[in-house]
Design a protein around this nucleic acid. Sequence first.
DNA 1: CGGATTGTCAACCGATCGGTTGAGGATTTT
DNA 2: AAAATCCTCAACCGATCGGTTGACAATCCG
Lengths: 134, 134
Amino acid sequence: MTIRAAPNTFNLMVELHFTPDSARLDAVFHALGDPTRRNMLRDLASGQRTVGELAAPFDMSLAAASKHIRSLEKAGLVRRTIRGRTHVCRLEPRALADAHQWISFYERFWNSRFDVLEDLLRRADTPDPQGDEQ
Amino acid sequence: MTIRAAPNTFNLMVELHFTPDSARLDAVFHALGDPTRRNMLRDLASGQRTVGELAAPFDMSLAAASKHIRSLEKAGLVRRTIRGRTHVCRLEPRALADAHQWISFYERFWNSRFDVLEDLLRRADTPDPQGDEQ
DNA sequence: CGGATTGTCAACCGATCGGTTGAGGATTTT
DNA sequence: AAAATCCTCAACCGATCGGTTGACAATCCG
């Protein structure tokens, strides 16, 4: 009889090439991939908003907007506090910072003074078989 | 008889609250919202890769990986040049820069020394009706 | 030529997405 | 108590997503 680690969520995620980090980024980028939700975030940058206020600018049912907000919440981009019958939403910048940082890894590829050189280097590491392109 | 602007794609997009800019961000964030595609970008940061090389690390068919690459391409995150029978992919940093810049708008919400003050100010612009929270 | 190699395409599948409607819970207002 | 307000929930719908398989186009190699 061998001692085996009990299967758990974390092992599963590792096995499937997921990390908690990756799962969060999935949710954040997915949330950002919709213009309605991006507009809601813009709105929240000016201050807290109720669900109704967030929904107002959009030509859709309140239920639909509510789902968008829920998705923002799931991604950690928005926090909600219930005050009586109204739900007040605030921007939660941490998740945005995470996404920002992830993208920052690639910053050197667009804002370095050595753009051209770097590009050449990146191309060079697969030797060019002197063929025509296209 | 009135002179009316001929309907065109741009007008349609404006009317529907889309801008070309927004559509691009949709594609970019959507592409980034999948761990397979993010891993592919990481790979491309080390140099150009063929479709086969990009697909190799993943436990999925080549056709599936090919679709991911296509989605990265559609988002402008990757450029492809066909060289004989192999397709060589390179990172295209501009789209990433756009996404990065979009998120940067919110930078003040996470890295300012006035985090707490700003938060108070954002909360303050909707007057607090002295009620209990939750 | 014939056979690998590289990659796309089209059809299909189940799951998720983004929207709707209707019902109703909870709270506030009258 | 009754009505209005704020919002969620559940069921449903068509479209898109992420994967599969099989066929095949194109190129390289023997």
